[in-house]
Amino acid sequence: MIGLGLFNYWVVIFLMMVGFYTLIARGNLVKKIIGLNIFQTSVFILYITMGKIAGGTAPIFVQGEQEVVYSNPIPHVLILTAIVVGVATSALGLSLVVRINEAFGTIEEDEIEDTAL
């Protein structure tokens, strides 16, 4: 596991940038929220990567075993709650998209801007 060095972090940054690009370059509001979700998941992977210990196992106690290496449980706890909070906040964003569509008749950012000019 140690042999991988920083590879995981680089992939995390790549995913993060893909999400970031979707967020800033695409005008469709639903696509923006999907990009935000990609970004969010990349942060989850970053945290979980940091919690991993080479040769470790899931942090659930094994009965009768003394010499077991457990991975760090703290990132797991933080991300576990963040996932559920993430879907709740995404739902809030999606409901805003629905209301924007009802008010302006479109969810394309440039079209909303065009009608405003």
């Binding site: 709740a88 739902a91 409901s95 009802e102």
Partner: peptide, 21 residues
Amino acid sequence: TVFGSMVAIFYAFAGRRKVQT
């Protein structure tokens, strides 16, 4: 809370009618 919130959110989305614009 999680059960209630998730089902409430689903009801809100599914119960919405498509509005002609």
